[in-house]
Design a protein around this nucleic acid. Structure first.
Length: 112
DNA sequence: GGGGTGACAATTC
DNA sequence: GGAATTGCCACCC
């Protein structure tokens, strides 16, 4: 039995399960929130070990792209689930409602 | 024990 | 701003 992995898994699951619909988190952010900074590469494996369904599709790369190979069945599934929650895409890049400043640009002009 | 492997990230050029 | 490089660390041969 791996004490470390058990603890890591459960804390990751708890964080992922708490991500609100329509929002996304980076692997590094999840790891940090779980109390394991620098463990971004372990997050995916932990989710794959979850015995019960998790909103795994709300976890994306730090650059706001999906982690799966573009065009793969997993990629398409994740993209569709996110779209169903109102998450929009600019090509392969995710645009969260909360971080979408398109209206600001229209009202105030191009900004930083 | 040693080396390759990730559903990654930060830095550098 | 994109590509390349470097760091990361438990897991699994």
């Amino acid at each position: 039995m791996s004490r470390f992995r058990d603890k890591f898994d459960h804390r990751v699951w708890r964080v992922v399960a708490a991500i609100p619909a329509g929002r996304v988190m980076g692997y590094g952010e999840v790891a940090r929130a779980a109390g394991f900074p620098r463990y971004s590469r372990m997050v995916g494996a932990a989710m794959g070990r979850s015995p019960q369904p998790l909103p795994w599709f709300r976890v994306v790369r730090s650059n706001r792209t999906l982690a799966f190979e573009v065009g793969s069945s997993n990629y398409r599934e994740q993209a569709q689930l996110l779209k169903l929650e109102g998450v929009s895409f600019d090509g392969e890049k995710i645009i969260e409602r909360e971080t979408d400043h398109s209206l600001d640009r229209i009202l105030w002009g191009p900004q930083d």
